[in-house]
Simulated scan of single mutants.
Amino acid sequence: MKELSLILLLLLLTACRSLLPEGGREADNIWTSFEDAKVAFDRIEPYRTRLEDLRDLGFDPTRKANVQILNYSQVAHAVLPNAAMPLEAQPKGMRDCIQAQHQCIGYLIEQSRLNRKRIGGFWADFLNFSRETKMEGWRFVALVALVDGVVVFKQWSGQPAIHELERNHNPLGFLQGAGEGAGGLFK
């Protein structure tokens, strides 16, 4: 009988792990991975790639979410936060964008996929003694500047691999925040 109780207890505790919350954050992604985004970005050639080509590569604010349209001053500020830099010292594409002013627009693309999964023991998590959350994913950001429908400048940044572990430890468990809540009773 003891063995049966022990087996049932182990099964219950093992099954509880599946009760831990999971989640994720995914923008309406154009690409399925960081590598896909980078490959599409690398196909963009300044002074050759046209607006129609950008749309075919997935850089289209009218059909894809999370593509922001910037005016020329926003593009300049994103690339050159120091306005004191002389025009001659700026990249050629940025000079052309600034000189074109209203004929220059920019596309800022931010794509990411981040999955969150709680790990550890169910009861310690449920009773708020100890919580661990594992986060994995990727993030890709690209800026493209166009003058009269032709790409004149591009740059990218990102994180090909995000691996984070968030730990919270509360020695008093579910009572940990009770003092804060009780403080309001004595006002």
Score class of each variant (00 low, 15 high):
residue 27 A to R: 11
residue 43 R to V: 06
residue 104 C to L: 05
residue 42 D to L: 11
residue 99 Q to D: 09
residue 16 C to M: 11
residue 143 L to C: 04
residue 44 I to D: 04
residue 18 S to Q: 13
residue 160 P to T: 01
residue 120 G to A: 04
residue 123 W to S: 15
residue 166 E to I: 15
residue 123 W to C: 14
residue 144 V to A: 06
residue 148 D to H: 06
residue 47 Y to F: 13
residue 29 N to P: 06
residue 11 L to C: 12
residue 121 G to L: 15
residue 24 G to M: 06
residue 153 F to E: 05
residue 30 I to R: 11
residue 181 G to C: 07
residue 2 K to Y: 14
residue 86 P to G: 04
residue 180 E to I: 14
residue 178 A to R: 08
residue 178 A to F: 12
residue 177 G to V: 04
residue 175 L to K: 10
residue 32 T to G: 13
residue 70 L to G: 01
residue 7 I to M: 12
residue 185 L to D: 09
residue 63 R to H: 08
residue 141 V to M: 09
residue 59 F to K: 03
residue 59 F to A: 02
residue 144 V to W: 04
residue 81 P to D: 03
residue 23 G to S: 06
residue 154 K to D: 02
residue 110 E to H: 07
residue 177 G to Y: 13
residue 5 S to L: 11
residue 80 L to A: 08
residue 136 E to T: 13
residue 112 S to K: 08
residue 38 K to R: 12
residue 25 R to M: 09
residue 82 N to Q: 11
residue 30 I to D: 08
residue 163 H to D: 15
residue 143 L to Q: 05
residue 115 N to L: 15
residue 136 E to W: 00
residue 84 A to L: 12
residue 12 L to M: 12
residue 127 L to R: 11
residue 18 S to E: 14
residue 38 K to D: 07
residue 91 P to K: 03
residue 143 L to D: 02
residue 141 V to T: 15
residue 153 F to C: 03
residue 8 L to R: 12
residue 89 A to C: 02
residue 68 Q to V: 10
residue 21 P to V: 00
residue 32 T to F: 11
residue 30 I to F: 05
residue 95 R to V: 06
residue 180 E to K: 11
residue 26 E to A: 13
residue 75 V to L: 03
residue 119 I to G: 00
residue 16 C to R: 08
residue 18 S to C: 04
residue 185 L to A: 10
residue 109 I to C: 01
residue 17 R to M: 14
residue 21 P to F: 03
residue 33 S to G: 04
residue 78 A to R: 11
residue 155 Q to N: 14
residue 15 A to L: 13
residue 56 D to Y: 07
residue 81 P to W: 00
residue 32 T to M: 13
residue 187 K to C: 03
residue 10 L to C: 12
residue 100 A to Q: 01
residue 93 G to V: 00
residue 75 V to T: 00
residue 6 L to I: 13
residue 36 D to G: 14
residue 24 G to S: 10
residue 43 R to Q: 12
residue 15 A to R: 05
residue 127 L to W: 13
residue 140 F to N: 01
residue 186 F to L: 12
residue 67 V to L: 00
residue 155 Q to M: 14
residue 149 G to N: 05
residue 73 S to D: 11
residue 99 Q to L: 15
residue 44 I to S: 05
residue 29 N to S: 05
residue 107 Y to M: 00
residue 154 K to C: 04
residue 78 A to P: 02
residue 27 A to P: 04
residue 146 L to W: 02
residue 102 H to V: 09
residue 7 I to Q: 09
residue 15 A to M: 10
residue 92 K to G: 03
residue 82 N to W: 05
residue 49 T to G: 02
residue 109 I to N: 07
residue 73 S to P: 01
residue 103 Q to K: 15
residue 92 K to L: 14
residue 147 V to E: 00
residue 6 L to T: 10
residue 61 P to M: 05
residue 11 L to E: 05
residue 80 L to C: 03
residue 140 F to P: 04
residue 28 D to K: 09
residue 29 N to E: 02
residue 148 D to T: 05
residue 16 C to K: 08
residue 123 W to I: 15
residue 35 E to H: 08
residue 176 Q to G: 08
